[in-house]
Write a protein that binds this DNA or RNA. Sequence first.
DNA 1: CGCCGCGTTGAAGAAAATCAAAGCACGTGG
DNA 2: CCACGTGCTTTGATTTTCTTCAACGCGGCG
Lengths: 251, 251
Amino acid sequence: MGTSCIIRHFEHYAELTQSDRDLLASLERSPESSPKNTVLWEQGAPSEFFYTVSRGWAVSYRNMENGTRQVLDIYVPGDIIGLREFAFQKRVAGLMVLTDAELCAFPKMRLTEVFSKSILLCSIFFMITARDQAILLERLVNLGRRSAKEKLAHFLVEMCKRLGKTNPAVANELKLPLTQALIADALGLSAVHVSRTFQELKETGQVGVSNGGIEVHDIEGLKEIAGFDPSYLEEDIDAILEHSRRGEINN
Amino acid sequence: MGTSCIIRHFEHYAELTQSDRDLLASLERSPESSPKNTVLWEQGAPSEFFYTVSRGWAVSYRNMENGTRQVLDIYVPGDIIGLREFAFQKRVAGLMVLTDAELCAFPKMRLTEVFSKSILLCSIFFMITARDQAILLERLVNLGRRSAKEKLAHFLVEMCKRLGKTNPAVANELKLPLTQALIADALGLSAVHVSRTFQELKETGQVGVSNGGIEVHDIEGLKEIAGFDPSYLEEDIDAILEHSRRGEINN
DNA sequence: CGCCGCGTTGAAGAAAATCAAAGCACGTGG
DNA sequence: CCACGTGCTTTGATTTTCTTCAACGCGGCG
């Protein structure tokens, strides 16, 4: 099965010991593939696993009573899904894969076992959760206090940044497997308004379209439109690890 | 100095051992009081401590370039401030106390030490962070896909629930030390629209005013207006602790 | 071919923002 | 005790932003 998905992910943050790797490997199940547009669970379903995305895109969403939908998160390869349900028995949101995808499951309840055995892994998990919160905050700002144009620009920049982290090649070409309706549901807008706003960005040259994908021509321009501040994506793992190691010595 | 703030808070979740208590007590500094309207830090300031609120209200916010402001969180006694900055060197948002308040500081970097010494405390911290994320998600939904009236109703119900958790008396009388401008900044609305929306709720009898405070007359009505689903506030600590204890045995 | 999902366009309407002024409660100083 | 200032809320009029509805275009695919 090669290097497991989460090990690769975590080694991006810090050097793991062999026992850390063994520990992670013992938890991770083999990847499960799902064809595009599969709903893996609905909100309210029991929440026993979290997942890492090894291939494809997924989206978590909330269906509202009035028939609308709010997209809460968009997941790309390398992301972790469902950590936030650590404290809950049930899924707080539905999950759908957008493309053919592969996810690796982890039994949620064995996380505490990991925590007790490796302070390093514990710190990394905590760091990831805290960083995810910072991202959510930024999204809150996006929904609360930005115009449609700013929202869309900010969204595109964030996707660029996140994709660029694992795949430096895609710095300014975005092939998003997202419909405009889905982007609308992520930004709290209507689909037609997203379409119009895209037109605006095309006219002023920040984005373009090429065979179904979105091309980002001017990421700096988008950043300016959005008032983008990248600091919320720049977690600092080193300082934590420093102390984490010190904690280990104290053990 | 009596029982420390965070110990009281944590014992609400689980029974701590004496060594857990000692560990927490060794970290917590004595409470610092701040007069109302004090800004404790601005976004971008170094982030070395997190805090527990032992008295008073506080609010974290983000100032936008266009002069507007987004309120990210409102903190009441018992809440923890700044855990989300675990992974960051800098504050991602400003913090202001709204009333005269007392906060207890914790050196952020000693968290990993706590994690390594007590799997129970580690689990509780993780649980709190995960639950905070669930609350943020609900707020995302609130900002993205609800009308002004629904937003306000949802906001009031959430505050009721959160206050009622520590103080069962205030189930349906709310004395909020919040201006309408601040509520507006929390909900992504303008202050005048919040005022108008309040009028609506008064006319239909869900809320009233008495000497400066807000009275909630009909919390069920508000829930219905908002489409309120309380499950995001009902974390389930027991299942986690069960496994946490098992983890400890494995040590 | 014809259907279907998705994007685009236009027109009309609703929701909320903005601007400006006035009211009200409260504290302060004369 | 009253006048005054200040911070917050309310109100009305106007404008902007976004939604809704409906229709059409367009490419892919059975």
